[in-house]
Design a protein around this nucleic acid. Sequence first.
DNA 1: GGATGTGAACTATTTCACAGCC
DNA 2: GGCTGTGAAATAGTTCACATCC
Lengths: 220, 220
Amino acid sequence: MTQKVIHRLSVYRRGLAAVQARDPRRTHVFSHEIAALSGLGAAQVRRDLMTIGFTGSPARGYEIAALVTAIGCVLDHPDGLRVALAGVGNLGRAMLAYFLVRNPHISIVAAFDDDPEKTGRVLHGCRCHAVADLGAVCAGEGVQVGLIAVPAGAAQAVADAFVAAGVRSLVNFAPAPLRVPPGVAVQDIDITTTVEKAGYYARHGAGAPPGPAREEESAA
Amino acid sequence: MTQKVIHRLSVYRRGLAAVQARDPRRTHVFSHEIAALSGLGAAQVRRDLMTIGFTGSPARGYEIAALVTAIGCVLDHPDGLRVALAGVGNLGRAMLAYFLVRNPHISIVAAFDDDPEKTGRVLHGCRCHAVADLGAVCAGEGVQVGLIAVPAGAAQAVADAFVAAGVRSLVNFAPAPLRVPPGVAVQDIDITTTVEKAGYYARHGAGAPPGPAREEESAA
DNA sequence: GGATGTGAACTATTTCACAGCC
DNA sequence: GGCTGTGAAATAGTTCACATCC
């Protein structure tokens, strides 16, 4: 299951949730509707659903509830995803606020920062620990994903600490590539780079007029 | 010049800047060094530099200063990039703080929010306007890129306002695909989706052990 | 010997297009 | 008639491998 498929499945699910919320009576959707909701082509949607072995009917399309469940089987952890956050700066606090409400199956269970003003405090309902305790706390909490929102200079050390604590999947907001051992996944969210890309397209136009250019940032 | 090449050029430049900062006496680098700095293969680096018509010498490699300039010619606007921010929530404030220091050729010249607590105020050195004034202010300030950090429900309306104001390139943090006319570029930064992807890899492993899995999130 | 520049091979991903079904 | 499921074609992107130069 490739990175790109995973990503689109997550997008499809969000679109389906929106449909369910807007009109709870709707039970089925067609591929071209999912496509419109996601900004993609219908063939792409059908191909992706084929990849996860989900099947619809020509007459009614795909059953929404069943499809949401099927996507959940691929994406979600049965008991919810336990995430830790390193770096409680502006961006880190935004993450805390964001995931506090959001997604019922994702929760930030611990935060880490070396600022003594923050350590020991509870921010957005999340306890902030010293970075030195990262290993012990993550192991104790059964953390599965680490969010790295520290300055670039500290990112590699934090990544190493997560890896040592047995965390096998990281999301990196720091503008530096992480070195991790095989078997550990990294998703990069590189804001500077993305804004620079946007700047490029502001100057050079968005490619071929038929169909607006579109791309998405993320790394494994 | 494809999306992916642009992205990597931005990454290369950051790596080169790090080299220059660490050891100002270094004047040249080899492709495999740039590759190591960026988490890529040397062949990829050489291919990208070929794409922008930059050439080195087998004996000394690539001249750092000249390469930084050449990348700047592709990525940067001659007079700096003028960016506007819509949505001064947690994430929006993180952006303001981030770009205040960062990149000398990127500056956030205006912010917009409908919270009366914020409108009229100056945050992180940036004036916050009412969203109703978005069109006038962006036109007046010559804004080239719009950052959308508002809730999903408001994102499309804000995007439309940016487009109407003549902004041709957007960065979208909202978890919803934007509809924009041809010729307008959108880069999506989809945090929920990225964390879900990380969750998937926490559960399923990071693919083939030889060479850690890696992917990056961004859209045009 | 080791690096660049690059055609050619390879792999990944998307899109087409059509048979089959309702 | 319109939609799904899916081989096959097309396209995009990466990596190899080697001639060439220092």
